[in-house]
Amino acid sequence: MGTLSLEKIDHLLWLGRYVERSYTTLRFITVTYDKAIDSTDGNWKGQLEELGFASETENVLEFFRDCLFNEANLCSLAHSMGAAYDNAVMLRDVLGTESLSYVQMATDAIKAAESSESPLLDLQLVQDNIMAFKGCIDDYVADDASRNIIKCGMSVERIDLYARLSYRLDCLKQETHRLASRIDRTGAPYDKQAFKDLIDIVFAPSFPESATYETLGKLLSVVARIFP
């Protein structure tokens, strides 16, 4: 575990998770919004249920603004990016000014988008700044364990979201490979049996072609156990 405290490991892990949650949630919401604008059958709400969004409104714009900008909504983009920033601030000494600044700029871009007449342009800046942060940590996070904990957090969150949304399931083998290449380089405690169970599910011959809701539910349970 080196010089990293359990508290710092937790902040690093959740920084990675919240950054990835923000990125994937934003991509999924914007794609779903485009479908909702073109849809006439009223099924656009159901596509976001697995992310935890629920609302009585039938107004498409009002619903999606809540998904994006309502910080009180724990599933929203604004909440996730705000949580990422809170963790990043606690890691200023590990991340460096350059890496932290991209998290700040992504957070600021969400606030700008909320009041913008062209919110999609500002939301694109959110994605761009998150991608810049992901690249920046390779150059500016000197500690190998810290860098790998952040990336493990990203991988765990991506696996969780893809399973939750039944989205890009064909990418889970590659993401599990990434996690396997990093997890033992973190020095952080993790549940080895849970990780083995993840590998068994994802690399089963029938996955993802024959994956059922039961399979994906088991996968979510396993992922939740990897980091205690």
Rank of each mutant, 00 (worst) to 15 (best):
Asp144Trp: 02
Lys196Ile: 06
Leu68Ala: 05
Glu62Tyr: 10
Asp170Ser: 13
Asp41Val: 07
Lys151Tyr: 09
Val60Gly: 00
Leu15Arg: 07
Arg185Phe: 11
Ile150Asp: 05
Asp160Glu: 09
Ser76Val: 02
Cys75Leu: 01
Glu62Gln: 12
Pro119Glu: 11
Ser115Glu: 14
Lys173Trp: 02
Gln47Ala: 15
Ile150His: 05
Leu48Ile: 07
Tyr23Ala: 08
Leu219Trp: 01
Lys218Ala: 13
Thr107Asn: 13
Tyr33Val: 05
Asp191Pro: 03
Thr186Val: 08
Leu125Ala: 09
Ile199Tyr: 14
Asn129Pro: 06
Pro208Glu: 06
Ala83Asp: 12
Phe53Gly: 06
Met90Tyr: 10
Lys134Pro: 02
Glu49Pro: 02
Ser221Ala: 13
Leu26Lys: 03
Ala72Gly: 11
Arg147Ser: 07
Lys111Ser: 13
Ser155Gly: 12
Thr215Arg: 04
Gly217His: 10
Leu26Thr: 07
Lys35Leu: 15
Ala113Gly: 07
Thr176Leu: 07
Asp184Thr: 15
His11Arg: 10
Cys75Asp: 12
Ala88Cys: 11
Phe133Lys: 01
Lys8Ser: 07
Lys111Val: 11
Leu6Tyr: 10
Val31Tyr: 09
Ser118Phe: 15
Gly187Ala: 05
Asp93Cys: 03
Cys152Gly: 01
Asp128Gln: 14
Trp14Leu: 05
Pro208Ile: 04
Thr212Lys: 10
Lys134Phe: 08
Asp184Pro: 05
Lys196His: 08
Ala204Gln: 04
Gly42Tyr: 11
Leu51Gly: 06
Asn70Gly: 00
Leu121Met: 14
Tyr140Phe: 15
Gly52His: 10
Phe28Cys: 04
Ile29Asp: 05
Ser221Met: 09
Ser146His: 09
Asp66Ser: 14
Ala109Phe: 04
Glu114Ser: 11
Gly16Glu: 07
Pro208Gln: 04
Leu172Arg: 03
Pro208Trp: 05
Asp122Cys: 08
Glu98Pro: 00
Leu77Asp: 03
Arg21Cys: 06
Gln127Trp: 04
Arg182Phe: 08
Val126Met: 01
Asp184Ala: 14
Val156Trp: 02
Asp200Cys: 03
Tyr213Asp: 14
Leu161Arg: 07
Cys67Gly: 03
Tyr18Cys: 05
Ala113Trp: 07
Leu100Asp: 00
Phe133Gln: 02
Asp93Arg: 12
Val222His: 10
Gln104Met: 13
Ala211Glu: 10
Thr186Gln: 10
Asp86His: 13
Ala224His: 12
Tyr167Thr: 05
Leu6Ile: 13
His79Gly: 03
Gln124Met: 12
Thr30Leu: 15
Cys152Arg: 00
Ala188Trp: 08
Phe64His: 05
Ser210Ala: 11
Gly82Glu: 10
Glu62Thr: 14
Leu219Asp: 02
Ala188Lys: 06
Ile130Asp: 00
Gly46Asn: 09
Leu198His: 01
Asp143Gln: 08
Tyr18Asn: 09
Ile29Phe: 06
Ile159Pro: 08
Glu71Asn: 08
Ala72Asn: 14
